[in-house]
């Protein structure tokens, strides 16, 4: 080599120099805090007991108890009905929220912000927490689950709807208004045709999520196949749990596939 010059060092502002260290220290602090305060009972995790359970539970999970098939399918059907009812309620109830939160529809800043906040607030709660509340309110039955599903779904659908509405072509609306159409006519001829496919697509997508969610609502008494899960696990009937697991996997996968197909054709 003729020359041997090292490249000049990169010029950085003090913040650029510090940044990796600051991020590193913050991360390190979080992890130290986490790992020093988490209480994992390793003696139980790696105990004789665990090995026994492992050798008992795992083989049973993989040999489903087909005699429970009728019962499991019945409850899976109930689960699907719960999800359907909940999603449909939400798909309709979310419409006013979507309109109120859409800036191009409602020109009232207060209403906009208030509905956006309401939707965000709903989404902060896991469905199971909502369900627990409703079980307390209306008693342990599927209805509690349906309401929890509906309310949880309004949070997401309302937000997605408002985004769809905000993205529509307002020229069409203006053209209709210029022709002297009244508000209702504008809604039905100018706005609804533009938003229907997306609304439907999102509602169907939410149905996928709600099917997953409703499978576990029974754990706290809100109906569906989860009821059976609780019973089977407390009885340590792992081959029945295995069957439930299998049914959930197959049904959820099927619904995902069908729903994806429908949504592809819609939008």
């Amino acid at each position: 080599m003729t020359e041997f010059t090292l490249p000049p060092k990169q010029k950085k502002t003090p913040w650029q120099k510090m940044r990796p260290y600051v991020i590193g220290i913050i991360l390190l602090a979080i992890y130290i805090w986490t790992f020093t305060s988490i209480e994992i009972r390793w003696s139980r995790v790696f105990s004789q007991h665990t090995i026994e359970s492992l050798t008992r539970v795992i083989p049973q999970l993989f040999s489903p108890d087909w005699s429970a098939f009728g019962k499991v399918m019945g409850l899976m059907w109930e689960t699907l009905l719960m999800a359907y009812t909940g999603t449909l309620m939400a798909a309709i109830l979310a419409i006013p929220f979507g309109f109120f939160a859409a800036r191009n529809m409602v020109k009232n800043k207060f209403l906009n912000t208030a509905s956006k906040w309401a939707l965000n607030a709903i989404r902060a709660f896991p469905e199971l927490v909502l369900a627990l509340m409703f079980v307390a309110a209306v008693g342990p039955r599927p209805f509690a689950g349906v309401i929890a599903i509906a309310i949880g779904s309004i949070g997401m659908l309302g937000k997605l709807y408002s985004e769809v509405i905000e993205s529509i072509d307002m020229n069409v609306v203006e053209a209709l208004e210029a022709n002297g159409a009244n508000k209702i006519q504008v809604l039905f001829y100018g706005i609804i045709p533009q938003i229907i496919p997306e609304f439907l697509s999102y509602a169907i997508y939410r149905f996928e999520i709600d099917v997953r969610a409703s499978t576990i609502l029974g754990i706290i008494g809100a109906g569906g196949i989860g009821t059976l899960i609780t019973i089977a696990t407390t009885n340590r009937n792992w081959s029945e749990v295995g069957l439930i697991l299998l049914v959930i996997i197959v049904v959820v996968t099927l619904i995902d596939i069908i729903s994806a197909q429908i949504r592809k054709r819609l939008v």
Binding site: M1, L6, P7, K11
Partner: peptide, 22 residues
């Protein structure tokens, strides 16, 4: 190694673009 870094820098100088290093 330092030689490699120097070589990389020298290569950039040969095509006149060493000022864009970083």
């Amino acid at each position: 190694p330092k030689e490699d870094q120097a070589l990389a820098y020298r290569s950039l100088q040969r095509v006149n673009i060493a000022d864009k290093l970083y």
